[in-house]
């Protein structure tokens, strides 16, 4: 059945409830909720969460914002924790200790800090071992939970509290790690990069494929942070759209090694459009700093071209 947003929202209950305590306008709950909507209603889920904004706001004792089973252990080990739960499922199912006709799906959520940085080993291990699970990174490009410190997902030149734009050093001086490509190199059955773009078709369909592809799958989802990025809380969906239209955050999937770019902007916008509304890039627009924007643009263009090439090469 073709995707229909209204139908999905009307018929599939929210499995990520209200009453959580993430900031107003946060990009992450929107992503988490839609990913879970991709579950078949009759399927149970075990959700693991790395420590981070999402975890500390959705499960503050005695309140859980998750209607499925949920486990949080620590910052760097959502992958390993969930792999243990999945192994338990496989074992108990094999022994006939769980009903044969009922299914549980395994989904991990982690921010970029818990995924790109401190949790990359645990993630890599879980994916390599082939557990039937999905790891969803909601990437807001810094350690937002502890107060906007730079991570390896932070874009170059961004002003964060540990890469401040100072008089000598203009923000973060290193490029953003490409975690999606690292996960592609694990040769997983399904890897995708996406974000929340109305009508959420891209996100929903990728989540559905990730959840219902047997074996390990990885979703990298950009999730803007109004506080850390420095934009008004109401601009969430516009920032997402600009990330896609400037090709800063390309939407694509890799199925068994084959690349497929799922969104090609009719008109690729200059990167300034994405950078300008965000205070973390404000210093790039000062006179004399034009080189920073040029360099940023070059990097975006190079990575986009790489993707176009990969799509061509892998589909020959």
């Amino acid at each position: 059945m073709p995707y229909n947003l209204k139908e999905v929202v009307a018929n599939k209950p929210s499995r990520f409830t209200a009453g959580h305590r993430m900031c107003a306008g946060c990009g992450a709950p929107v992503v988490g909720r839609m990913v879970l909507r991709a579950l078949k209603e009759e399927d149970h889920a075990v959700i693991a969460n790395a420590t981070g904004c999402m975890e500390v706001s959705t499960f503050i004792y005695p309140y859980s914002a998750w209607t499925d089973s949920f486990i949080h252990t620590a910052f760097e080990c959502a992958g390993a924790t969930l792999s243990g739960a999945e192994a338990a499922y496989v074992s108990l199912k094999k022994q006939g200790k769980l009903p044969e006709d009922e299914h549980t799906k395994f989904i991990a959520f982690g921010g970029d800090g818990g995924t790109y940085d401190i949790g990359i080993q645990s993630l890599s291990g879980a994916m390599e071992r082939g557990h039937d699970m999905v790891y969803v990174c909601y990437d807001n490009g810094a350690y937002m939970n502890t107060g906007i410190q730079r991570s390896s997902a932070t874009p170059k030149f961004a002003d964060t509290t540990t890469s401040p734009a100072g008089k000598v050093i203009p923000g973060k001086m290193q490029s953003r790690k490409d975690l999606t490509e690292i996960m592609v190199s694990h040769h997983l059955p399904y890897v995708a990069q996406t974000l929340a773009l109305n009508p959420f078709k891209d996100l929903y369909e990728k989540a559905e494929k990730a959840i219902y592809t047997k074996g390990p799958a990885f979703l990298n989802v950009m999730a803007p942070c109004p506080r850390g990025w420095g934009y008004a809380t109401d601009e969430l969906m516009q920032i997402n759209k600009l990330a896609a239209d400037t090709c800063y955050w390309p939407l694509y999937e890799v199925v068994d090694g084959k690349y497929h770019i799922t969104y090609k902007p009719a008109k690729k916008l200059p990167i300034e459009e994405f950078l300008k509304p965000q205070k973390r890039f404000r210093h790039m627009f000062k006179p004399g700093n034009e080189w920073m924007i040029e360099e940023f643009q070059k990097e975006v263009d190079r990575r986009w071209q790489d993707l176009l090439d990969l799509e061509e090469v892998t589909n020959k």
Partner: peptide, 12 residues
């Protein structure tokens, strides 16, 4: 966790 009749949350 695997008890679908009573989903639980662990590690608040």
């Amino acid at each position: 966790l695997l008890n679908r009749k009573e989903p639980i949350a662990v590690g608040p």
